[in-house]
């Protein structure tokens, strides 16, 4: 995974579009024009970036709260290591689970290793989802907790920074 480099034009395309594409029926043509590129070249580069997985997709990022999903929760589980991988795959396949991860425990403050994000339109619905996960995990689960989202404080996502990452960072002033 080391030495993955973006060529300067790819980088320029991503920097110019990561905050939002032009809202046009031909967004790539507008962007290409702004960058002094041919649209065909810009599209070919974006497709290549998507093939390499650097661009997951070109998409809209929804705000769950504003869409009526007001009971968003991170459910966390202390699952027997011997079964964690198999059970993680099973939980991750549930339709109401948007993300599912295995993470390290940090004892004594954090005993949970399996994380599943669930989204409901009410806490009642979310508690039902949590109960369904608990039933799936059965005896392999020793303890669990649920952490409801109160507020989204920031949701910018990963952003490229304008400077070349190979360049030495200047110490931050101010």
């Amino acid at each position: 995974m080391k030495n993955v480099t973006l060529d300067p034009i790819d980088r320029q395309i991503l920097l110019a579009s990561q905050d939002g594409l032009p809202l046009s029926i031909t967004p790539f043509a507008v962007l290409a024009r702004a960058l002094g590129l041919e649209q065909a070249e810009l599209l070919a580069r974006l497709r290549r970036l998507q093939e390499r997985g650097i661009v997951r997709r070109v998409a809209a990022v929804p705000n769950h709260f504003r869409l009526g999903f007001v009971a968003n929760a991170m459910t966390v589980w202390d699952v027997d290591d011997a079964h964690a991988r198999r059970l993680g795959r099973t939980v991750g396949a549930l339709s109401f689970v948007s993300h599912c991860y295995l993470r390290p425990r940090r004892l004594p403050v954090w005993p949970y290793n399996l994380f599943a994000m669930v989204h409901g339109k009410s806490r009642e619905e979310t508690e039902g989802q949590r109960a369904a996960i608990a039933a799936l995990l059965g005896d392999a689960c020793r303890a669990s907790d649920v952490l409801y989202s109160v507020r989204i404080l920031k949701k910018t996502g990963f952003r490229l920074r304008p400077q070349d990452p190979e360049a030495k960072d200047e110490p931050c002033s101010g």
């Binding site: 990561q18 939002g20 997709r57 070109v58 998409a59 990022v61 996502g157 990963f158």
Partner: peptide, 11 residues
């Protein structure tokens, strides 16, 4: 604010 942005999602 229903959609945060429409853009390439980077990994």
């Amino acid at each position: 604010g229903v959609v945060g942005r429409f853009a390439p999602m980077l990994d």
